[in-house]
Amino acid sequence: MSAATAIFDRSGRRRVYNGVFVLLCMLATAIALVALAAILFSLLRNGFGGFGLSVFTEDTPPPGASGGLRNAILGSVLLCFAAMIAAVILGMLAGTWLAEYSRDGWYSRTVRFVNDVLLSAPSILVGLFVYVIAVRPLHGFSALAGALALALIAAPIVTRATEDVLRLQPRTLRESGVGLGTPFWIIIWRILWKAAAGGIITGALLAFARISGETAPLLFTALNNQFFSVNLLRPIANLPVTIFNFALSPYEDWQKLAWAGALLIAFAVLAINVLVRILAMRGKHV
């Protein structure tokens, strides 16, 4: 009886506590939203100032000349795709091994732990690591080294997503495959990966969004390039480092291009996130 009255008693201290707590929550949300809106607003206002067709058709200019970001955009796309190819292959295989083949031994626990550490490793460390193993021995910055650094950041995300979504598949799905006499690798190839495709693609797209804005790992690896280049063994232009350089420069036209590049990355990441949401929603109905 007393418990019931306590639940319906809205007049006393409980009501005050509740009000204060809701107010604090709203305040916290407001602070986060204001910050986000401020960033987006300045990005839009400044970014559109430097925007035009020339951004896509001309290469990065010397100070004072007109130009665009063509080489940087192409370089970024190239770096990200190369990195994602490596990361998806590595991550899917590692995640599949963790979910389907590893018995719960010290080795699988170690792999899982190391993967979790890599998930939150500072990206500048990854850049330095690749500098030591791929840039210094080959005596030169290269697009390949940049892609390698990005792949090392993306692979743990794909690994984790693959393992998680495979573990969500019902045990009986595997057993039905086995019950038909299917070799286990065919069950993985034809049934489990298909059933888990939505989650794996979502993980891969999130990894893609994450690496598309990474600057630190590229500073030590792909460096940058004033000119148009698709040679994977030479330094390559890319958006994040170009933004970094141009934004710190004293030249106004460079700064404008930096804003345009930032806006471009923001939109790309936004588009990827929207795509992920759509895929995730569709996945629920399948």
Binding site: P170, T172, E175, S176, G179, L180, G181, R190
Partner: peptide, 14 residues
Amino acid sequence: SRVGMVFQQSTPFP
């Protein structure tokens, strides 16, 4: 392949 099995939970392949 000689001894088939059907489970409690239906499990169509995707």
